[in-house]
């Protein structure tokens, strides 16, 4: 019998302290122990991107991280990013452009897109569609063919890069 180990971390701004089995992935920990079901599990090998969350501010696959590894770290799931309205503009653009169908991949894509858009500030050149596709290369969507997703992200990127006058 392998003993559970303590883990202390910050999830969506709240301190969390649990004992976890070492083999428990961060994704299963977030879903099952904390009920954060925006973290979707598709492939569990880092290919589909549905489980991507921010770890200390950087997008990572929650299926390729052990819960026990995250001791002392900060995790933000789509729930937290949604509550803080960090992804509000993206959510609005995804809604307006119908950039989802079944929605399974959407949380991972929103987390990745949010990180990608950090580079977009007023006066910067808006990223190309190719750059957006490159940023999304680790996210599978089986419904949309990506066009609407790229459209929605492009719209937010252009708005973020627009100067005050143009906006």
């Amino acid at each position: 019998m392998i003993a559970p180990q303590p883990v202390n971390l910050t999830v969506n701004g709240a301190r969390v302290r649990r004992f976890v089995e070492p083999r428990l992935s961060l994704a299963d920990f977030l879903r099952q122990d904390l009920g954060l079901t925006a973290v979707h599990l598709g492939c569990e090998v880092g290919a589909c991107g549905a489980c991507i969350v921010n770890l200390d501010g950087q997008p990572v696959h929650a299926c390729l991280m052990l819960a026990v590894q995250t001791d002392g770290m900060r995790v933000d799931t789509l729930e937290g990013l949604s509550d803080s309205e960090a992804v509000a503009a993206l959510q609005k653009a995804f809604h307006a452009r119908n950039a989802l169908q079944c929605g399974f991949c959407t949380p991972g894509i929103l987390v990745v897109a949010l990180g990608f858009l950090k580079g977009c500030r007023p006066g910067e050149t808006a990223p190309s569609r190719e750059a957006i596709r490159d940023a999304l290369s680790g996210n599978y969507c089986r419904c949309t063919g990506y066009e609407a997703i790229v459209d929605a992200i492009e719209r937010v990127a252009k708005a973020a890069c627009a100067t005050q006058e143009a906006a």
Partner: peptide, 9 residues
């Protein structure tokens, strides 16, 4: 190499 999220770890 792989995708951005993989490159972060």
């Amino acid at each position: 190499m792989a995708h951005p999220a993989i490159r972060n770890l």
